[in-house]
Design a protein around this nucleic acid. Sequence first.
DNA 1: TCAAAAGTGTTGTCCTTACACCCATGT
DNA 2: ACATGGGTGTAAGGACAACACTTTTGA
Lengths: 234, 234
Amino acid sequence: MTRYSRQTRILVAVDCIIFGFDGQELKLLLVKRHIEPEKGNWSLMGGFVEPGESFECAATRVLKKLTGLENVYMEQLSAFGDPERDPIERTVSVAYFSLIDINKYIQQISHEYDAEWFPIKKLPEVIFDHSNMIEMAKEKLRYKAAFHPILFELLPEKFTLPQLQSLYEGIYDAALDKRNFSRKILSTTLLVKQKDKEKETSKRGAFYYKLDRKKYANKFNAFLNFIPNPQKLK
Amino acid sequence: MTRYSRQTRILVAVDCIIFGFDGQELKLLLVKRHIEPEKGNWSLMGGFVEPGESFECAATRVLKKLTGLENVYMEQLSAFGDPERDPIERTVSVAYFSLIDINKYIQQISHEYDAEWFPIKKLPEVIFDHSNMIEMAKEKLRYKAAFHPILFELLPEKFTLPQLQSLYEGIYDAALDKRNFSRKILSTTLLVKQKDKEKETSKRGAFYYKLDRKKYANKFNAFLNFIPNPQKLK
DNA sequence: TCAAAAGTGTTGTCCTTACACCCATGT
DNA sequence: ACATGGGTGTAAGGACAACACTTTTGA
């Protein structure tokens, strides 16, 4: 016996939900679909899973092709299997979401793909069930970031506390008290204060911090509770 | 165009991780595999996804076939896609975990399948990557139950506080203070005290409680924080 | 000198924990 | 009467939220 006979084989794809943060707001990277159906419409970047390739491989490959980036935060969101989700032919999709430093992303590559960053609050229409995927990814990001220090993945190596705070405020649509915020963040001892300041956005300048990568790896699973009223989240 | 040409189609299956609680310990329902390869070895209950059937449908169908149960708690765990996970032919699997009231489970049906409940701490060897799936499911259950009141799904309609407490203690391998436990649980106002008592396990008897189903549905997403040291969890 | 953003401490409240004794009943 | 598990209250400590003023410096 070398095959399971009489069973239906199905197309399997991966789709990547790619988050970035430009210092102001949370953004999502979308591409213009280059094949029919829905050619020319906005879509998550995706691709079929190839023979001999795991989901992680496929998603990593797809992400790299679009952004030029490797070794970024990526996590399986969910598998989507509605029989009608692709009108051409049944295709199941395993969705992954990634958090990338938007500055490292290579503009040139994405031009080849007709890619564009959209503010998470002003997304265009997207094909198939992609808006459903995106909704789930946003929810999961909010959920996870409430207890795990994953938002650092969206920032450059050096960042300031006000930048970090505005990232949290953006994601939770909430105003945070900067005294409480900095006390809570610094109490994790995950951040190392630098000697230099960021002086673009204010006259006085704000000190840079770096992640303590070692502690970060160890403490990743620590629950943080950054958010005032987590009751509202799923 | 009616098909995506030149792409590989793959077998897609679902596997169910079925948890139950017998009043003493957490258990898992396994079946003896009835097809080659690994015929006769212990396995999660699974099945191929059929044409026109979503993952949820497939998982529900598989669960019902084995337990006779419908409308039970079920959640997608993850998709597993290692190309080598099934030695016969590449098969991706979407795993679902379920929490069922072990008393409602119909003994007779499971006999047809050679099914057996195993204590979660004394599992036999299982086929393929099923032990990996089980590990992930245990972790996810611990994670989720720390913040959401899902463990009620494992209990019968009427249950006592000591029963509930021993369920939490079993899942977290921790001794809990019964005064603090009952205060915390009752403060959710999710439980309604009954007039009758359970008198099997003690002379004095313990009052039964029922879930307030309405509040339960509303408050499901409330964070509960039942566990003393959530730092240890993933 | 003024405007704009950075930085810093204290207090009250509430939640969490630790802890010990009495109760009801079957044998 | 005693053994077994069920049920209850309080006090201390820690975490969190609310809150306002001073600093720096470029224009």
